[in-house]
């Protein structure tokens, strides 16, 4: 993906830059709002990572508002040290697509960036079924089949599997699952998400020869077919 990174702190910028490069992305960077805005307007990006607090009079929200004002719908991920709920709401209201607070784990950022990039591509065609390898989800009837065998899932389990399947081949973090599947924005101390995923595995993986839901250490989960 072609990614623009606007971040003023050199350490954070080079850390994210390096990580994204290693993940196989093509990254442009800017260390202030003016350059960031210039690049964001003049180039075509798949995703823009914006720090909220930027030097030079133009901050992340200004850039975001300018872009949205020009009907530019490039997915934007806001990166900020402002973690308060209201700040998050402000960012999302201004047209941001996701919000990551500092300090963050790179795996979390990467997972969210890739999820956003994927979403950008899949916007056009509304799907009615999702197929990943031998797993098949019917979004209308809520039927799940694997290897031709029907699997009975609770509504929440279905949504969890659906989210994993929509992001098949990508890492999804626990926080992402809590936010997108449960719509919760707090930090649970116990392993609530792990337990739900492990329950899902009992139904989706255990009766079959191969597993498709995998744990990624220090990051989260990934749904992928054995041949990937």
């Amino acid at each position: 993906m072609h990614i623009l990174l606007v971040e003023d702190d050199p350490t954070v910028r080079s850390f994210v830059f390096k990580g994204l490069k290693e993940a196989g992305h093509n990254v442009d960077q800017a260390d202030n709002g003016k350059d960031g805005l210039y690049l964001a307007i003049s180039e075509k990006y798949d995703i823009i990572i914006l720090d909220r607090m930027l030097p030079g009079g133009i901050d992340g929200l200004n850039i975001l508002e300018t872009l949205r004002g020009q009907k530019n719908n490039t997915p934007v991920l806001l990166l900020s040290a402002l973690s308060e709920v209201d700040d998050r709401v402000d960012g999302l209201r201004a047209g941001g697509d996701d919000y990551v607070t500092k300090p963050f784990a790179f795996s979390e950022l990467l997972a969210r960036v890739e999820a956003l990039g994927r979403r950008g591509n899949a916007d056009a065609a509304p799907e009615t079924t999702i197929t990943v390898g031998d797993l098949k989800l019917d979004l209308l009837t809520r039927d799940v089949q694997r290897d031709g065998q029907k699997i009975d899932l609770q509504p929440r389990e279905f949504r969890l599997l659906e989210f994993l399947a929509r992001h098949a081949g990508q890492v999804v973090t626990r926080t992402m699952l809590l936010e997108k599947v449960w719509d919760y924005h707090f930090d649970p101390q116990t392993n609530v998400i792990d337990v739900h995923v492990s329950r899902l595995r009992q139904k989706v993986d255990k009766p079959f020869k191969t597993s498709i839901i995998h744990t990624v250490r220090n990051a989260g989960y990934i749904l992928r077919t054995p041949q990937d």
């Binding site: 929440r156 449960w182 919760y184 116990t190 392993n191 609530v192 337990v195 739900h196 492990s198 329950r199």
Partner: peptide, 10 residues
Amino acid sequence: AELYEASAED
């Protein structure tokens, strides 16, 4: 309760 029921059971 739905979210935590699984943790409790675990």
